[in-house]
C-alpha cells in the first residue's frame, strides 16, 4: 500500500512538508523529481482524511495509487476538459 510520483512532477516542493510519514524526498539539485519511499508511505491512513501529497499536488496524473491509477485524473485540477486540451494542442502543432 503506497503511492508513487511519476515523471510529470514539476518539483514544486508542495507535497514534501505535508507528508505525515516523511516518505517524500527530493534530489537537492532541484532537477531530479520528487519520490515517495514505498516502505514509509501509509497513504495517510489514520492521519488525514485526504492523502496529503495528492490533495495539494497541482499536476494532474503526477501521483499514482498502488494500482498505478492517477489520484488526480486529467481535467480534475485545472478544469480543462481533456478533449478540449487535446484539440488545443493539435491546433498549436498544426501551425
Amino acid at each position: 500500500m503506497a503511492f508513487s510520483i511519476n515523471e510529470h512532477c514539476v518539483n514544486c516542493w508542495a507535497c514534501l512538508p505535508l507528508c505525515p510519514s516523511a516518505a517524500i524526498s527530493a534530489n537537492l539539485d532541484g532537477r531530479a523529481r520528487f519520490a515517495i519511499d514505498l516502505r514509509k508511505c501509509t497513504e495517510c491512513d489514520g492521519a488525514h482524511a485526504e492523502p496529503q501529497c495528492a490533495a495539494i499536488c497541482p499536476i494532474e496524473g503526477a501521483i499514482l495509487d498502488a494500482a498505478g491509477a492517477a489520484l488526480n485524473p486529467p481535467g480534475s485540477l485545472t478544469g480543462i476538459p481533456p478533449h478540449r486540451l487535446a484539440e488545443a494542442m493539435a491546433e498549436i502543432q498544426a501551425r
Partner: peptide, 16 residues
C-alpha cells in the same frame, strides 16, 4: 518559492 496553495485559471503550474 515553487509551491502553491491555490489554483488560478490564468496560471499553469508547469512553470519552466
Amino acid at each position: 518559492a515553487p509551491a502553491c496553495n491555490i489554483q488560478c485559471h490564468y496560471c499553469n503550474r508547469k512553470y519552466d
